[in-house]
Write a protein that binds this DNA or RNA. Structure first.
Lengths: 200, 200, 200, 200
DNA sequence: CTTTAAGCGAGACGGTACGTCAAGTCTTCGT
DNA sequence: ACGAAGACTTGACGTACCGTCTCGCTTAAAG
């Protein structure tokens, strides 16, 4: 450990390790898309990636950790904060979420497995919480923005409202199995978004 | 088919079959709650239920079919409709749900497993839908009642509102892993329940 | 049990029992020929014979007893005592045995299984002994005859000689797996059969 | 293939593989002696040997191949050739065999299983032949010796006589289930062993 | 000429073993 | 020294038969 290590942090990582890591995560993502989480096999990841099973186990504790890692690899780019009235921006955001829940986005395909795993294992629950809040924070940010510019009441519990807006979308998608259609989103927003404080 | 057939319909089901069926489904639900869908093994169901593996396979094609059948047994008894102002009745209902999500109610323990299984198999998804809607209908019924007695606006989409009220409770419990506490429920109701139409 | 029962012994056997018995033994023999003893299953016998498994178990204790019974069903007809010199008659008999051991006679095909089963179970050993001695007695009878007519020494241990004559045939067929060919039989007889007592 | 290959031939066999192999074959022979071929179970071999079932299947295709391999391990050490008159030496040898057949020598306990397996599979039959001939060759060697020193007729078919001498012992032990007692051996030898050529 | 008891088929039951597969660990070798 | 290769133990899979056991139905006999 020398001084410059501090600044370059990971400069001297064994290139083989990095190569394995990339190949394995790539294969994992491919397979997740093809067979889903439930049928994903470490054996198959090893075969597909050309990396030995033992190497995979050396770097990841198991399927869950591997998938979690792969998931992290695919952080969504935050969309730039758009201008316009809050109601419109919220609607856009929720329609985007609704479309993802309906579609075959592989990240969403992992949600049931994530929820299930969260119920059994606190570490996964932490991951789940992080992901959930990261997703939610986009909605909350817009709402906070609305409060800031006076389009929404000052005393609004924006966190709670964000959950109330997204809750039905996930609930219907995952549990009711009757997903909210994008064109139902405006009705949802209209129902839940408080009227702006009357400006005298 | 004669008239008396109606009354005897299933009279001649082999009692052994029924006995096995009950024991197996009971054990399945127990285990689903304990280890989840992913780690549920037929072997364990056999051991827990005292029914031989071969007997299980004689009646169910595999894990999925078994679990589907088991979930069907989950139906809850409807509580009697209570009197009082709508806001209060809704709040009571949601607090009850919130308490269940927090607690260790075995039906709730099975929810993650149910969601996970639903994602893999349309038949289970149908079961999930039935259960979800049965649960939701209690809330919707109260809201409909509120509309009927004029405590809520006539044009209210009660189904959507029911989802918006219960959504956050399940979402936070299952996904956010930061369950709604019963004492947060009144705030939720206050935030989402529309004011009664002003009575002139 | 009345007096005349004694004389009619089996007269009043339920015809259904006899019908089952015949069908089952017939199917057993068929299957023995097709798949051998090792792969014979009671399930298959039931299917082939159209007789229910439970009925089979009602009459026979298991596979071994069933096969033993079937075996008994096929008692060989004793060939008529032929005339001629003893050496010739012995040779004929042994050539017949040698041909059976070489061929695919199903009775011989069961011998390995019989020997194996005999080693594990005294009851089967008794069956084996009976069959072995029944087969051997044909040879011994001829030898005894030879002693009687003076073609063989009076003090001859005919039992032992019978075993010495048949022994190599079975031993080579079953253990050496290099069966005695029929044309080797005369040499065997010549080697082992004592010369007739010199007649002064 | 060069010279030093001979010495190193199998040097780099994974020691774990060899360890498994030895343990499994040993357990197999033990069990063959105890329960026979028909009731031999791979599951039991795994349990007895402490080697996992999957490892057994990795190395052997099934029961038959396993048993074949195990029988190969059965080779006996040749006893040194003893001096003395041929009749005496033959008698000693046969009494030894007779004692083994009566006793509980584990190799003999496997004979029924070996015969049974031989009947079902040519590869095992080859093993059986090898073992049979190895055993027989001890007797034949003495007889050949007798011919060489002039105690037995020059034209004697020693192989055939060896079979005739051992045949009854095995036949009575395995099939008749009335084993030749050691004290019957001299009679057998006296009956079958040709008189020495009269020395003028 | 009906009872009555047997023999019957159907097939569910608890089991054992099969042969396969993946999980996750551990050992050996080669670079 | 570390990664690749792959053998190892473990345990569940889903299948096939085992031998036992009700069940009603049919059928032969005995009253």
């Amino acid at each position: 450990m020398t001084v410059q290590d501090v600044s370059t942090t990971k400069v001297d990582i064994d290139p083989r390790v990095e190569r394995s890591r990339v190949q394995v995560l790539h294969a994992t993502l491919e397979l997740l898309g093809e067979v889903g989480y439930g049928d994903l096999t470490i054996e198959a990841v090893a075969a597909r990636s050309g990396v030995a099973k033992s190497t995979i186990y050396r770097h990841w504790k198991g399927k869950l950790e591997l998938v979690t890692d792969a998931f992290h690899e695919m952080k969504v780019a935050e969309p730039p904060p758009a201008p316009g009235p809050v109601a419109q921006r919220v609607t856009d955001l929720l329609m985007d979420i609704a479309r993802n829940v309906i579609g075959t986005d592989w990240r969403v395909n992992c949600l049931p497995a994530l929820i299930e795993a969260s119920a059994r294992c606190p570490e996964v629950a932490d991951v789940s919480r992080d992901l959930a809040e990261a997703g939610m924070s986009r909605v909350k940010a817009v709402l906070d923005d609305g409060v800031a510019v006076g389009e929404l009441p000052a005393e609004l519990d924006t966190m709670l409202l964000a959950d109330a807006l997204t809750g039905p979308i996930f609930l219907r998608g995952l549990f009711h199995r009757r997903p909210v259609q994008p064109d139902e989103v405006p009705g949802l927003v209209a129902l839940l978004l408080p009227s702006p404080p009357s400006s005298p």
